[in-house]
């Protein structure tokens, strides 16, 4: 029973905030909605028993990416943006594409409608560490290379023209 309450309240929060992200006219409001949506997703990970993923979601997404996006919105925003339409003319076609794709995606979901969890969730942090430093060593190193490249790219692109 408790599991149902947690799942339905978290998924309602996530979906309502996600609709807010794509429909809000004020970009600051949609950035704040994004933060709330990511926090709700962290709760969903916790309800799935993925403890380390929950911690990573809170640390990277909620306190990193959401804050970064809010900073950028506040740097770039102008008061005149509030009077402009934020949605382009093709929203009908986009809605049609989403309706067609939803058919296939929900069919996949229906296929697993009888699948229940067989065992209780257990802490996974130790196994993740072993996997990263053992079998998945090369992806782990590649991802650190990607982070290094992103760091250098961000510094390079955000410098002013004069200092280049």
């Amino acid at each position: 029973m408790l599991e149902h309450i947690v799942f339905y309240s978290l998924s309602t929060l996530v979906l309502v905030c996600a609709i807010g992200v794509v429909t809000m006219r004020n970009t600051v409001h949609s950035a704040l909605c994004l933060g709330l949506c990511l926090a709700g997703l962290a709760g969903l990970f916790a309800s799935l028993g993925a403890d380390f993923l929950f911690a990573a979601q809170v640390m990277v997404y909620v306190s990193g990416i959401a804050v970064l996006i809010i900073f950028t919105v506040m740097l770039l925003g102008r008061a005149s943006d509030l009077h402009l339409r934020q949605v382009n003319d093709q929203w009908m076609a986009a809605l049609l594409i989403c309706a067609v794709s939803s058919e296939g995606l929900l069919k996949i979901a229906r296929f697993f409608s009888g699948t229940l969890a067989t065992t209780a969730a257990k802490p996974a942090t130790r196994d993740i560490g072993r996997l990263f430093l053992g079998e998945w060593m090369i992806p782990f190193e590649l991802v650190s290379l990607v982070l290094m490249a992103a760091l250098l790219g961000a510094i390079f692109f955000s410098r002013s023209e004069a200092s280049r």
């Binding site: 599991e3 149902h4 799942f7 998924s11 996530v14 979906l15 996600a18 609709i19 992200v21 794509v22 970009t27 950035a31 969903l44 309800s47 799935l48 996006i69 950028t72 919105v73 770039l76 943006d81 402009l84 339409r85 934020q86 949605v87 382009n88 093709q90 929203w91 076609a93 986009a94 809605l95 594409i97 989403c98 794709s101 939803s102 995606l105 929900l106 996949i108 979901a109 229906r110 296929f111 697993f112 409608s113 009888g114 699948t115 229940l116 969890a117």
Partner: peptide, 28 residues
């Protein structure tokens, strides 16, 4: 809770994101 519940939430979230990518005018 079955797997289908989580897959449905993820599918709806993906479709909302897809709609946003296709229709938002602002890069952010």
């Amino acid at each position: 809770m079955t797997l289908a519940h989580y897959l449905t939430v993820a599918a709806l979230l993906f479709l909302i994101g897809l709609f946003g990518v296709l229709t938002r005018r602002n890069v952010i």
